[in-house]
């Protein structure tokens, strides 16, 4: 269903206003080719999470009702209400707080949640669970209670739960927040193994340098800069203006 010549994700003048009247996103237009790894950076409150949630149709938007008005297109398909289930199969979403995502009493049940919702049978689900947990190095934690795991481990289990659904696009919201350096490095390795498209919203610019090839700078709901990672992040003008800092590694 996905054609390689189509962008993995396309935003067409995406705007969003919260019910309280605050404009969170304003006419954002951009496209991400398949297999790309893109970072979205910007100060807190810039609209990063809001943007990500649109990729999965998680926010009520009038544009969800009609094909022609769609503001988000995933692999050539407009994100509309009738297509949400299909879109959510293609787009895996890692939330910022692993405790928001892990809601089952055991790791196994949690990783199985996505595949079960895909309508797979028991044998297939178990294979997916095993594969997902193996991919994040947590294969021996099947019967553990998520509350007993460290933040890094919980994050990896979340990721396993998403990988078990076999998405072609991975959307990550602040993946490195609250992680210690080792857990952060493990996450980096896992994400580098992922073959599909990656879209990451983060404050961790070193992580961006290590993982992504392209950076979008978002502030006040608008894309302020867009380009190759090193060029954008090493530009003091862009960085300073949008409340960011040039990472040490790129300072000359």
């Amino acid at each position: 269903m996905a054609h390689s010549d189509q962008p993995a994700m396309e935003l067409r003048r995406l705007s969003f206003r919260y019910p309280n009247g605050r404009l969170a996103l304003e006419e954002i237009t951009c496209a991400v080719p398949q297999g790309d790894r893109v970072a979205i950076v910007g100060p807190s409150g810039a609209g990063k999470s809001t943007l990500l949630m649109h990729l999965n149709g998680l926010l009520p938007s009038p544009s969800l009702s009609k094909d022609e008005e769609a503001q988000v297109v995933i692999e050539g398909q407009a994100v509309t209400r009738s297509r949400l289930q299909q879109i959510r199969r293609q787009v895996g979403f890692l939330f910022q707080d692993p405790d928001d995502q892990l809601f089952c009493p055991t790791v196994q049940e949690d990783v199985a949640f996505g595949p079960l919702n895909l309508g797979l049978n028991r044998a297939e689900v178990l294979v997916r669970v095993e594969r997902g947990l193996a991919a994040v190095g947590m294969a021996d934690c099947l019967t553990r209670n998520p509350s007993e795991l460290s933040t890094g481990e919980r994050k990896r289990v979340c990721l396993a739960g998403i990988l078990a659904c076999d998405p072609s696009i991975l959307v990550l919201d602040e993946p490195t927040s609250n992680l210690d350096p080792r857990a952060r490095r493990q996450l980096l390795h896992i994400l580098r193994e992922f073959a599909g498209t990656l879209i990451v919203a983060t404050h961790d610019l070193d992580f961006v340098i290590d993982l992504c090839s392209r950076v979008l700078v978002l502030e006040s709901g608008k894309v302020q800069a867009d380009g190759p990672t090193e060029r954008v992040l090493s530009d003091p003008l862009i960085m300073d203006r949008h409340g960011l800092e040039v990472p040490w590694r790129l300072r000359r």
Partner: peptide, 8 residues
């Protein structure tokens, strides 16, 4: 109104 902008 809840604006759901948590963690933005």
């Amino acid at each position: 109104v809840a604006d759901g902008s948590h963690g933005n």
